[in-house]
Design a protein around this nucleic acid. Sequence first.
DNA 1: TATGAATGAGGTTTCATTCAT
DNA 2: CATGAATGAAACCTCATTCAT
Lengths: 200, 200, 200, 200
Amino acid sequence: MTTKEKIMDVALHMFSERGYEAVSIRDICGEVGIKESTLYYHFKNKKDILDSLTAKFREHINGLLCDVDEILDEPLTDAEDFIGTKMMDKYMVESYLFEPFCNLMIRLMMIEQFHNEEIRELYEKTMFTDPYEIQMGIFMRLAKLGAFSEEDAKWIVRDYHAYMNMLTYKYLLNGELTEERKQGYMREVHEYMQRVMSRG
Amino acid sequence: MTTKEKIMDVALHMFSERGYEAVSIRDICGEVGIKESTLYYHFKNKKDILDSLTAKFREHINGLLCDVDEILDEPLTDAEDFIGTKMMDKYMVESYLFEPFCNLMIRLMMIEQFHNEEIRELYEKTMFTDPYEIQMGIFMRLAKLGAFSEEDAKWIVRDYHAYMNMLTYKYLLNGELTEERKQGYMREVHEYMQRVMSRG
Amino acid sequence: MTTKEKIMDVALHMFSERGYEAVSIRDICGEVGIKESTLYYHFKNKKDILDSLTAKFREHINGLLCDVDEILDEPLTDAEDFIGTKMMDKYMVESYLFEPFCNLMIRLMMIEQFHNEEIRELYEKTMFTDPYEIQMGIFMRLAKLGAFSEEDAKWIVRDYHAYMNMLTYKYLLNGELTEERKQGYMREVHEYMQRVMSRG
Amino acid sequence: MTTKEKIMDVALHMFSERGYEAVSIRDICGEVGIKESTLYYHFKNKKDILDSLTAKFREHINGLLCDVDEILDEPLTDAEDFIGTKMMDKYMVESYLFEPFCNLMIRLMMIEQFHNEEIRELYEKTMFTDPYEIQMGIFMRLAKLGAFSEEDAKWIVRDYHAYMNMLTYKYLLNGELTEERKQGYMREVHEYMQRVMSRG
DNA sequence: TATGAATGAGGTTTCATTCAT
DNA sequence: CATGAATGAAACCTCATTCAT
């Protein structure tokens, strides 16, 4: 890991725990093992660290969204439910909520949304708007296969979305992200899905 | 309004917008129209302002909880749904989520939960634990009247709880709390209730 | 005790322990049980408390000096040593070093001599110049009775003076002034006197 | 002189005149010619300046004590009095009481002993305990050569010690340390030594 | 007598940042 | 790449004091 990467890594860990303001350049440099002046060789200023992190996050997210869009454009099959599960597990969970960098970024955004308009927007996009759209895409495909009416799908998505947020907050954005908590999250997610599917 | 009250009022508004750390004693005093040293006549230190606010909030909350407990202990009637609606509207909404002081305190706690353990606890209690218990109490009464099974009630409460949080966050904890947004919130709440009731 | 006296009493105790600067008006008033503004009814300002204490001390000292001067003017008798001992015990010890008010004032002066020119002078006068003169008076009387030459007397006084200071500092100006420490002081003083008298 | 040394130098001069509390960071920086924030690059906080001074003083003292111990372990000679005089002049006087850094440190300790327990201990050690032991070592050597009984030596040391303290305080710890005052001190010290020796 | 409320001056400290080396 | 040294701005807080009531 280069010094620049080390700085970003340390900063992300600290920002996501204490918030941007509460972390000082001193804190970061102390942990990285460099002098404060050295940091300014790698970054223009404190804000630049945050910007670099969000830029990296945006790239990561964009990659995921491309993949997801491709899949959602595939023709319908009978194994549609498989696609939905795969999507959720692979993209929403494995590569996003569970993925270390993204998980910390979400925590960081959750804290900083109140201090920073740009971050608030990114947070709303990546935690509400985008997931909502994707989930809507999936449930619409299921509706087209006759699992439920398209009208019902809208409500199902809203309920689903609200419930997922609750679980995410409960299991994934507090304390350390252990295997145990990940499994707890997965269990509750699947439990919910079964309820939804059996209800339709 | 006494000077002390004015300080608390201004501080609450600022804290709930920018967060505790980001607001300086200077900021508060500038807005109140006093010198910084004067503030220290009324409060021991900056933390003391926050503590006074949370103390006042706790008192307010305790008053509400007492009222609610009394109502939940009343004998069952056929107009039970009325009680549930009354509770929600009067205590959860009118005297809590819509009530200016509480609304700002919730925003403040939402921000500060990440920087302050005591506030995190208060936030979890007043936004999750307490409401969950109250809602459970109401739905259990409805279950006893035959609206649905007690087993179903548990899931209904969880769904309900998750959905309410989403609505609360969407309408009541962002930007200014206008009449328009309040009405939007109420509309969606009642819409949801109808869905739930018709589903059972 | 009037409020004014209480203030002086509390201030003296605090000043003599922590020094004038280190004691705040708040500290004093907190201990006395009045508000800061009340203190300014009794004293012009902080300095005025100190001045009142030194004024009171000066009066006390002047009373003692008058008594001592009278005795030193009495005609010589054969029981001269008795006079010396009486003087020392009664005036220097009982009414001065051991006397609670004076003892605290000495401690106060010992600390404040470095911050306050007026106090430095008072300290030098009451702890060095005056005692030296009195002791010289006594030893001269003894010399006149033939105990030792007047030339020797001068050295004896200087040695005596230096030794007494050491004992005073060791026993009377540190920690609490207990009966035990007073007795320790007296023992060493008399031990020294015997040595001096037997040497001559 | 580096900036850090300059700070320590200025701080020592000010502390030894006015006392630690009465000197502000602003005062020091003003005299050194730097901004307050610069001082915090070199020292953790105000206390850290004091600690650095005492640390430096301790080192200096330890060096002296080692030298003195070595000399006191040398075999007795007939020119013993020479050793005693040399010791006193070289170590106690030249390298300690007259030495500019130590002289100021002693003044500083004399003032701060009343506000700071650690300094009180250091003061007692370096102005009472240590000198007393050294003087005892010297006089015991003289006693072994037959100058006086070992029993007498004890009293002689005590008298000597008390007298030296008086002279030190009178000549060396007040006002500026001029050549004149140093000579006055030396004169009185030697005068006293002659008296002691002639008496034995 | 006593108090509540206010204030100006000043204290220590932290912070992000700059710049020559 | 990295550092040592410096800095301006701003933070929180304490203190002695004043004055109307």
